[in-house]
Nucleic acid binder design. Structure first.
Length: 936
RNA sequence: GCCCGAGUGGUGGAAUUGGUAGACACGCAGGACUUAAAAUCCUGUGGCCAUUGUGGCCGUGCGGGUUCAAGUCCCGCCUCGGGUACCA
């Protein structure tokens, strides 16, 4: 029978749909399993062949789990707010909701063709008011909570107000923007407005004046993870620093828990490492340096307090609040000029000339708390205001940046660590006027201390310990931990996002009442900023509350809607809560999450933060949202080239091009087969090539190729619809898996797809003859057939468990090849085979399952168990090596003991040849594996 | 610079705890069927040498090491990919 995949796939997709085969509900009788795909942004280009890779893998795993008796939640939805639809709206005037709807429709059509087991009744869209009601709600909850460091937990802001009114900030240990100090009396005597201003310092969602990444081309602020190399990831536009009043989320409050939580997760080490680096924990000390002839104190953060005797100057960030206090009148002009200069430099410029050393002296001197020495205080933009305290102690002998700065401004250098493996040099101090003995800062991770008073002779770790103790004792500092993780800027000056449920009264923000949620996105005449530079929402009519108070004009960023979508899938139609207690207690968390690694520092940090907050306020039962996470690799494009001889319309074949001066030109991969150009199709492809001439080799035009990003401009986009049209969805599914390990990036090359398609046809042939008649018999299976089947069940089961889907496909091919050779058409073998094939090729398996006489879906068939008894063989073929080199094979009984094996091997005719006149020194026998004879 | 990860035939890749390197597929070559082509089926296919046949040597980025045995473990390098970058 012909393998009529079109008919089969249409038939069963219809069946699944009509019978709601993939609908799931809470079922306390069965264990749950939650498999999630990172939901897509529905772009105008539609899906290419790289997108479904992860979806196919998760679908296989979902079906496998279902067959093993689990109640599997496997939903899909759309991350529907976003810049491209809005940029398109700006250009064309078409409302982004319309564009988005259209794109979603196309995505859905494409997804449906692949045969996924999604429960579409649970679909969510982040741009749906019913959905974003809960995004807005969560934001309001963050506004209403603060973070208590002692209990490591979010708490209601009302509790903080009570603390303030009773004891002020005395003994307070909470997350805040700025450390404030006031008494209860002071708090109680403040006006309501003043109190509200102060509370913003503590709220988890707060409004603050902050330096932001402003992208003029997009007209909006961007978060750190939305920028790379100083330009926006979306569109590649330049970004500059600007101070603006913005909403922020106090993600930094959760830094410790976000870091510690990683230990409990089954994520790849590399992904955990990326998150660890992003969170950036460093242990060190805050130390106080007094300023000479002044009451001012400088607080600095250092991880190397032990090098304090090597400090020869101090540096402040230009933005530091201490700058005006420490600038002496005679240096004022110079300092102000420098500050003006640094402000002008955008982030991008700062990056492009990293090596350029700039700075200015304040005129002040600080006093080293240990040595009592007076050292100059400088200002330089190599010190960041946002990290630590915005001030450092400089140890030029052991820090590259400090060293460069010292050399540039001729500041003295004192070596305090002799690195491991080096001898103590004669000269350990340098100052202006003599030749500098060093070319660069010396490594100081390991070694011993010199020029350091009571630390002299100690090893580096000992010295760190001793200094910490010392500064604690003397009260000149405290041991602290610093995190690199910044609070997330949460405002975007754009239209197509969630409106903030916020209004303003007397310049202060207030939350709308929960009953007024969702606050729906208003209509605007244009999707551009207003003439006054307000965001697009400034164009909306009546964008005010019932009482007439103005509403917030910014909208929320992309990560807002994706931060809790996995919770909403558990209970997608609930109007009373983000997720009901019952649904959340049943589904708990995501057991398996599959998606791209590009979300490592964005979505995967924010949603962990979001989830932890919801956990703190009792909305969800799990502290971490994604227990196991797999990053699927990228599918790259495989481009093809033709070579045009310069100045002509003549093209020369790949292996002949070296004799000509040619320009390589991308050619559509869809008109190239196995690197051979379809010349007719090429002439029709572009009018420019209508009259093209060719220099052929062996009568063919051979194209060149290269692996590049899959994109329209490279003409290497392969559309899953085209593959399905030609080979069917089951072939597409198998081939995507067959390409290689899931986590690995690999180029898409349609060559080779024939192999898996042939495999499916061969499978069909085990069931039907060439007239389409079922030839399956009820005959008893032979040991060989049973061994093939059970070996395959074992291999497939264990390979699915370790997400090795490519080897599964090979195992199926081996199985079908063997059964074909055995001419096996027995139900006893073929029925279990159709069940284990179902996760990979669900359409064909469903067809075969029904052909075998079953009524219900193959999805609910019990996963077969392999039995070891069928795998046992009576003889083992031992490879026999001599000095580690395999020379011949010998068949021996499986239960033969070591001694007998040794004798049998040595008695073998071939063994004599290899031993020759040499002596047998040793014989190693690994039962059922190998024999190695050591001769010499 | 720092931190991860990876280098295996012409190609994608396999080898799960150190135990027959190259499974499975693509491609290529030869053959069968066919008027022909497509499809299908069969055979061969890491390199080098030798050959009537049996065969031999080399071989998992490079150089060392551990081991009876190394693609797999250890040390040093090279190349590519990813992350991050004035983070004190």
């Amino acid at each position: 029978m012909d393998y009529n995949f079109k008919e089969i796939e249409n038939k069963w997709q219809k069946f699944w749909n009509e019978n709601k085969v993939y609908k799931v509900d809470v079922d306390k009788e069965r264990p749950k399993f939650y498999v999630l795909d990172m939901f897509p942004y529905p772009s105008g280009a539609g899906l290419h062949v790289g997108h479904p890779l992860g979806y196919i893998a998760s679908d296989i795993y979902s079906r496998y789990k279902r067959s093993n008796g689990f109640n599997v939640l496997h939903p899909m939805g759309y991350d529907a707010f976003g810049l491209p639809a809005e940029q398109y709206a700006i250009q064309t005037g078409q409302h982004p909701a319309i564009t988005t709807e259209k794109n979603i429709k196309r995505y859905r059509e494409q997804l449906d063709k692949i045969g996924f087991s999604y429960d579409w009744d649970r679909e969510v869209r982040t741009s749906d008011p019913k959905y974003y009601k809960w995004t807005q709600w969560a934001f309001q909850q963050m506004f209403k909570h603060y973070y208590c460091n002692k209990d490591e937990k979010a708490k209601p802001i009302a509790e903080l107000e009570e603390i303030f009114s009773k004891t002020g900030t005395e003994g307070l240990d909470v997350a805040c923007t700025e450390k404030l100090e006031f008494t209860a009396e002071e708090w109680n005597s403040k006006s309501h407005k003043e109190q509200q201003e102060i509370l913003l310092n503590y709220r988890l969602a707060y409004l603050a004046d902050t330096m932001v990444n402003w992208c003029p081309a997009l007209g909006t602020v961007l978060a750190n993870d939305e920028i790379k190399d100083g330009v926006s990831i979306r569109g590649g536009h330049p970004v500059e620093q600007k101070k603006m009043r913005q909403w922020l989320l106090r993600v930094s409050a959760y830094a410790k828990r976000l870091l510690d939580g990683l230990e409990t997760l089954e994520w790849t080490d590399s992904l955990k490492e990326i998150q660890r680096n992003w969170i950036g924990r460093s242990e060190g000390a805050d130390m106080i340096f007094k300023v000479a002839d002044s009451d001012v104190e400088m607080k600095i953060f250092t991880t190397r307090a032990d090098t304090i005797f090597g400090v020869t100057f101090m540096v402040l960030a230009p933005e530091s609040e201490l700058v005006p206090q420490l600038t002496k009148p005679e240096h004022k002009e110079e300092v102000e000029a420098y500050l003006k200069e640094t402000k002008k430099r955008t982030e991008r410029e700062r990056m492009s000339d990293v090596k350029k050393v700039t700075g200015v002296f304040t005129g002040s001197y600080a006093v080293n708390p240990l040595s009592g020495e007076k050292i100059p205080v400088w200002i330089s933009d190599y010190v960041l205001a946002g990290y630590g305290t915005g001030a450092i102690m400089a140890v030029p002998a052991h820090d590259t940046r400090d060293f460069a700065f010292a050399r540039h401004f001729d500041l003295p250098i004192t070596q305090v660590v002799v690195p491991e493996g080096e001898d103590e040099p004669e000269v350990t101090f340098w100052e202006k006027g003599s030749e500098c003995p060093w070319e660069d800062a010396k490594d100081s991770k390991a070694g011993y201390m010199i020029n350091s008073d009571f630390l002299n002779g100690l090893s580096v770790p000992e010295a760190i310990e001793k200094t910490k103790e010392y500064i604690k004792e003397k009260g000149i500092g405290e041991v602290t931990v610093n995190y690199r993780l910044r609070d997330a800027i949460f405002s975007r000056q754009r239209y197509w996002g969630e409106p903030f449920p916020v209004y303003y009264k007397d310049g202060l923000p207030y939350m709308l009442d929960e009953s007024e949620l969702p606050l729906e996105l208003p209509e605007v005449d244009k999707f551009l900023p207003t003439e006054d530079g307000d965001p697009p929402l400034g164009r909306a009519k009546n964008w005010v509350t019932k009482e007439g108070y103005p509403l917030e004009l910014s909208t929320m960023p992309g990560f807002a809607g994706s931060s809790a979508y996995y919770l909403r899938y558990m209970d997608p139609h609930n109007d009373e809560a983000l997720v009901s207690r019952e649904a959340n207690e049943y589904w708990q968390d995501v057991d398996l999450y599959i998606g791209g690694t590009e979300h490592a520092t964005g979505h995967l940090i924010y949603s962990r933060y979001w989830n932890k907050f919801l956990y703190d306020i009792g909305v969800v039962v799990k502290d971490e949202p994604f227990r196991k996470l797999i990053n699927q690799g990228m599918i790259q494009g495989r481009s093809n080239f033709v070579y045009r001889i310069k100045g002509t319309n003549k093209f020369v074949s790949y292996n002949l091009k070296k004799d000509y001066d040619v320009t390589p030109i991308h050619v559509d991969v869809n008109i190239v087969h196995n690197d051979i150009l379809d010349i007719e199709a090429f002439r029709n492809w572009n009018p420019e090539y209508k009259d093209a001439e060719f220099i052929l080799e062996d009568g063919k035009y051979v194209c060149g190729h290269a692996v590049e990003k899959m994109s329209k401009s490279m003409f290497n986009v392969v559309n899953p619809d085209d593959i399905i049209e030609q080979y069917g969805a089951d072939t597409l599914r198998l081939y995507e898996m067959f390409l290689g390990p899931l986590e690995q990036s690999k180029p898409w090359d349609t060559q080779g797809i024939d192999g898996v398609h042939k495999f499916l046809r061969k499978t069909v042939k085990l069931f039907f003859d060439k007239d389409g008649k079922l030839i399956v018999t009820d005959e008893k299976a032979t040991p060989d057939e049973l061994r093939t089947l059970h070996r395959t069940i074992k291999k497939i089961t264990s390979d699915i468990e370790r997400f090795s889907f490519n080897t599964c496909v090979s195992a199926f091919m081996i199985c079908v090849n063997e059964l074909t050779d055995l001419k096996c058409h027995k139900r006893e073998i073929l029925e279990p085979l159709s069940v284990i094939l179902a996760p990979f090729a669900p359409h064909l398996s469903e067809e075969l399952w029904h052909a075998l006489g079953h009524e219900g879906t193959v999805c609910d068939a019990q996963w077969p168990k392999w039995e070891e008894k069928f795998l046992i063989e009576s003889t083992v073929t031992y490879p026999v090596s001599f000095n580690g080199k395999m020379r011949f094979k010998i068949d021996l009984p499986a239960d033969m003991d070591t001694k007998a094996i040794e004798e049998a091997v040595l008695a073998h005719e071939q063994a004599k040849k290899w031993i020759g006149d040499k002596t047998v020194r040793k014989v190693i026998v690994v039962p059922r594996k190998i024999v190695n004879v050591v001769i010499g």
